[in-house]
Design a protein around this nucleic acid. Structure first.
Length: 258
DNA sequence: ATGGTTGTCCTACAA
């Protein structure tokens, strides 16, 4: 089974990219973030014509997440949002696909350390941690994937000195990431690749992609039963080179059968 | 190089 995450930065604009990528990548599960569209506006028929079912949790203008699942796979227990957390921003959706619990998250960006949005980010991360801990008890084979808006390590940053203690790299954010690791989750990309300069996001400005100046902020964390099944994990830079791209590119994890 | 781009929506805001 192949599972992937991609922040598309508007599904309206990026729908042709998603259709093309689904056709070429043959993933079983694709988690999308930043749909930036109302719940009623989701392009379900186009996704279905690509051979996928869709579960999504959208809102006008901002945020919004979706899980696309290849036809024929069993889907159960879809949950929108974080239960018992009345978050006006729609950032989380979860579903069980076959034997894998998939939690798709668009983590808070946080704007700048010390801002109101940063305080919201830290609170949101605490809520997510509790939700993941609860979910692991019920679903031992679990993947938490999405746009974390956290670069976990200096290896994941094109200029660690300039980004030190800045939002996406600050110690409280990295501590939250480590607490997820402490629950028994593993950064699947780092199982196979310890190199620096491996990024999943590049700012649109200043030709950052062409110069490969980016951050690795999109992640697929897996629980131990899935870690044992992990075959490889790759960042697919191809869609970032397409015309009018998202600023993020997909991350793909391949799992061996259970 | 203290700049620069994109999406939503129409004026700033978010990233």
């Amino acid at each position: 089974m192949k599972i992937a995450t991609w922040n598309v930065n508007s599904l309206n604009v990026r729908l042709p990219h998603v259709v093309q990528w689904l056709a070429s990548s043959a993933v079983d599960v694709l988690c999308l973030q930043e749909l930036k569209m109302d719940q009623e506006a989701f392009p379900l028929s186009t996704i279905e014509q690509s051979g996928y079912r869709a579960f999504w949790f959208g809102q006008k203008t901002y945020n919004g997440v979706a899980i696309l699942v290849k036809d024929g796979l069993r889907v159960e227990d879809v949950i929108n949002g974080i239960p018992d957390y009345d978050d006006p921003q729609r950032r989380v959706i979860a579903a069980t696909v076959e034997d894998v619990r998939v939690i798709c998250g668009y983590f808070v960006n946080g704007e700048a350390v010390g801002s109101d949005k940063y305080a919201y980010k830290l609170d949101w991360l605490a809520r997510l941690e509790a939700y993941v801990a609860q979910s692991l008890e019920r679903w031992p084979s679990l993947a938490l994937l999405g746009d974390y808006n956290i670069a976990p390590d200096d290896r994941d940053v094109y200029d660690a000195e300039a980004w030190k203690d800045k939002v996406l790299c600050s110690e409280p954010e990295r501590a939250a990431f480590r607490r997820l690791i402490g629950m028994g989750l593993t950064d699947s990309f780092r199982l196979f690749n310890a190199e620096d300069k491996q990024y999943s996001w590049w700012d649109y400005r200043a030709a950052m992609f062409r110069r490969n100046l980016g951050l690795r902020i999109d992640h697929i964390l897996v629980s131990d039963p899935l870690k044992e099944r992990a075959a490889h994990c790759e960042i697919d830079k191809a869609p970032r080179k397409w015309e009018r791209p998202s600023d993020h590119t997909p991350v793909v994890l391949t799992l061996k059968p259970a």
